[in-house]
Amino acid sequence: MFKIGPHLSTSRGYTNMGRDALKISATTFQFFSRNPRGSKMKKLDEEDIKGLIDLVRENNFGPLLAHAPYTLNPCSSTESVREFANLVMAEDLERLRYFENTYYNLHPGSHTGLGIDAAIEIISAQLNLVLREDQETLVLLETMSGKGTEVGSKFEEIGRIIKGVNLKEKVGVCLDTCHVHEAGYDIVGNLDGVLEEFDKLYAIHLNDSKNDREAHKDRHEVIGNGKIGLEAIERIINHEKLRDLPFYLETPQDLEGHKKETELLRSLRK
């Protein structure tokens, strides 16, 4: 079954997120674990969470993806920012114990002057502090576009972070199609070659890109309207190494727009 869905808002509650997904025939979705540009976390409502769990079970949803806030930077050169990241990750993973079948997606961060090597060591160390043997949620490191001092725009950097993690079975990778395109990987002309470099891939952020390859800007576009294009998107969703993974849309669309995208993508599945 094609597991695909958009990024949804938690403003109306967890159960309503599931209902919104069903309205557009989505079979999974992504949501922010807390305020994406702050630190506040939605108050825990176990009944609301249970309602979502029941809905997910009844409709055979794929894994739900909780996205860490953009303010999280585990490899910052500022100690207080690193401490905040550690606190947020620990709190989010503890909250996700109430859910079932979830992934936790995070940006590796920006080294802000420390350098790539030091940043990679710090990110691994941060993950070693928060990961627990008994946790069920899988933590996914997202591939990045390479703007500024971002870590994770090269697959090798993601691999080195995971190599430094003790509980390797608790971590994986989320490939963002816009990000890897803008990082310089040729997913349009050489998808097979790009995927040969990948390991521990568990999820796809399916986005078109406003920019040409290697732009390093991170500008998402509606499916089929960008520089990746619909033909390449079709190859991605049907590729033997990707087709059974969950796909999450982060395109600049409202719910109705995501419905149209979902219908389009389903029509392209082979």
Rank of each mutant, 00 (worst) to 15 (best):
residue 4 I to F: 06
residue 11 S to W: 03
residue 21 A to P: 15
residue 27 T to I: 01
residue 34 R to N: 15
residue 35 N to W: 06
residue 36 P to E: 13
residue 40 K to D: 03
residue 42 K to I: 13
residue 43 K to L: 12
residue 44 L to M: 14
residue 44 L to A: 13
residue 45 D to C: 05
residue 46 E to G: 12
residue 47 E to G: 15
residue 47 E to P: 02
residue 55 L to D: 07
residue 57 R to N: 14
residue 61 F to M: 05
residue 69 P to H: 03
residue 69 P to Q: 00
residue 73 N to D: 10
residue 74 P to G: 02
residue 77 S to L: 09
residue 77 S to T: 08
residue 81 V to N: 05
residue 81 V to M: 07
residue 89 M to E: 00
residue 95 R to G: 09
residue 97 R to P: 11
residue 103 Y to N: 06
residue 104 Y to R: 05
residue 106 L to F: 15
residue 110 S to K: 10
residue 114 L to F: 09
residue 121 E to W: 14
residue 124 S to T: 07
residue 129 L to N: 13
residue 129 L to P: 09
residue 131 L to T: 06
residue 131 L to P: 00
residue 139 V to I: 13
residue 141 L to K: 11
residue 145 S to M: 08
residue 148 G to K: 02
residue 151 V to C: 12
residue 155 F to I: 10
residue 156 E to A: 15
residue 159 G to H: 12
residue 174 C to V: 13
residue 177 T to E: 01
residue 182 E to Q: 09
residue 185 Y to C: 10
residue 187 I to T: 01
residue 187 I to K: 00
residue 188 V to G: 08
residue 193 G to V: 04
residue 194 V to S: 03
residue 194 V to F: 01
residue 205 H to K: 01
residue 212 D to Q: 13
residue 213 R to P: 01
residue 218 D to I: 02
residue 227 K to V: 11
residue 228 I to Q: 13
residue 229 G to P: 02
residue 229 G to Q: 14
residue 234 E to W: 04
residue 234 E to V: 01
residue 235 R to H: 11
residue 238 N to S: 06
residue 239 H to Y: 01
residue 242 L to K: 08
residue 244 D to Q: 13
residue 248 Y to A: 06
residue 252 P to E: 03
residue 252 P to I: 01
residue 254 D to G: 06
residue 255 L to W: 12
residue 256 E to P: 14
residue 256 E to L: 12
residue 258 H to G: 04
residue 260 K to F: 05
residue 264 L to N: 00
